[in-house]
Structures are given as structure tokens and as C-alpha cells.
Amino acid sequence: MSNQTYRQFDPWRTAPVRETERKDVYKTHYFNIDRISFESNDGNEFERYCINANSGDTVAVLALTDDGKIPLVEQYRVATHRWTLEIPGGHPLGDERPLDTAKRKLAEEGGFEAERFTQFARFLNTPSYSTEHTSVYFATKLTPVSRQSIGPETPRSEVRMVTLEQAYEMVVNGTIVDAKTIIAILRLKSGDFGHIND
């Protein structure tokens, strides 16, 4: 992979708008919704709604068994009224640190504990209207443990153990549509894990 940069990009350059007012319109355990007023450089005013994550990064765990299988969790997602296949993941509880959340979610949802966790990605989920980030971990040296119910939406979720090639095919053919899962699988498939696989 080339280190050459074809176009310089500065994500922290001067903003083209100025925030003039912010009001909380809704609060939940995981996030708040703010109504924000802005003024652009040409004097125009406009409003946007922003979701502010208030419980730290969400996490996701790409786990790999010694025989090369990845646990994918069947989840029913009420917002989209559909089933998804996802790597284990979720929100922290209280002051839980991301790594501890990753360990808990891998056990609860995936049914495994791991000796090794390495963070290999962090991304903005929906930067157009949310501050939420997801930290993605690679977990190896797995040991099976008892799973827990993962919530009222999916009282009897199943875990499918698939190879990397099967997971990649499900990304390509649209079976897997969850962003964190797509990012993790494509990263593993690319082989660009460097020291993570050592």
C-alpha cells in the first residue's frame, strides 16, 4: 500500500459556519438531541439537529477463532424492521472503558472470551448529524462462554460461525448491511492488519 498522498486534506481547517445557539431538545441515557442555530460566512442563518453521544464510544468486536471462524450475531433492529448479521458490539455501561465494553459484548452476544484484544479502527458513525464514534477491536485466542439474552428486540438471537471468505461474500452480495461489520470484515480481508496478526 502506497504512503503517497495525492491530495492534502486538513479536517481541522477553519469552519465555514459559526454556531450561534444550542438547545437540548431531548435527553436519553446514550445520547442527547440538540437543536443548533448556525450563521454562514455570507450571513445566512439555518438550524440543524445533532445527536450528541454522552456515554463514550460504542464498540464492535471482530473475533476470530483458532480455526478461522468469525461469530456473527443475528439481531432484529426495530428502527429498520429487519434482521441483520453483525459482529458483537454496543454501548458502554456507566463509566465502562471501551475495552471493557468490548470484552462484555463479545461474551454476552458472541459467546466468547478472548485472551487478546487489539483496537484497529475508530470511525464516526454518521458525521452529518451525530458525534458518535465506534471503536473496533480484533479478538483472538477465544474460549466459549455462556451467552446472554441481548435485549427484548431479539430474545433468542443466534450466532452464525462463518469463515472470512463467507463473511466477505455476504458483504459483497448485500446480506451484511451493518456498517461496523462491513468495515471490520473488509479490513481483515484486505490483509492490512500488520502487527495485529502477529
Score class of each variant (00 low, 15 high):
Glu109Gly: 00
Tyr6Cys: 03
Ala15Val: 09
Glu153Gly: 03
Lys180Val: 02
Ser55Cys: 15
Asp95Tyr: 00
His81Trp: 10
Tyr26Thr: 09
Lys27Phe: 06
Asp24Thr: 14
Ser149Glu: 04
Pro127Ile: 06
Glu86Arg: 07
Ser190Lys: 02
Val59Pro: 00
Glu96Val: 05
Ser190Val: 03
Lys189Asp: 11
His195Cys: 11
Glu45Cys: 12
Ala114Met: 07
Asn3Arg: 04
Glu39Arg: 11
Gly89Ile: 07
Glu153Trp: 08
Ala79Ser: 15
His29Gln: 14
Leu93Val: 15
Asn41Glu: 15
Pro16Ile: 08
Glu115Asp: 13
Glu39Trp: 07
Gly111Asp: 04
Arg116Met: 04
Arg116Leu: 07
Glu108Arg: 13
Val73Phe: 07
Asp34Ala: 10
Glu21Ser: 13
Ala102Asn: 04
Thr134Trp: 00
Tyr49Thr: 10
Glu165Tyr: 01
Thr143His: 13
Asp198Cys: 04
Arg104Thr: 01
Gly191Cys: 05
Ser55Gln: 14
Ser146Gln: 13
Asn44Tyr: 14
Lys23Cys: 07
Ala102Glu: 02
His195Pro: 15
Asp192Trp: 07
Gln148Ala: 10
Gly174His: 03
Arg82Ser: 15
Glu74Arg: 14
Glu74Asn: 11
Lys180Thr: 06
Arg35Gln: 09
Ala60Leu: 01
Arg82Leu: 08
Glu169Pro: 00
Phe46Gln: 04
Gly90Cys: 04
Glu132Tyr: 01
Lys23Val: 11
Thr65Glu: 11
Glu19Arg: 13
Ala79Asn: 14
Lys141Ser: 13
Glu165Ile: 00
Ile182Tyr: 05
Gly56Asp: 02
Glu47Met: 12
Ser130Lys: 05
Gln8Ala: 14
Tyr6Pro: 02
Pro11Ala: 05
Lys69His: 11
Ala107Ser: 08
Leu85Ser: 06
Ile185Asp: 03
Ser190Thr: 06
Tyr76Pro: 01
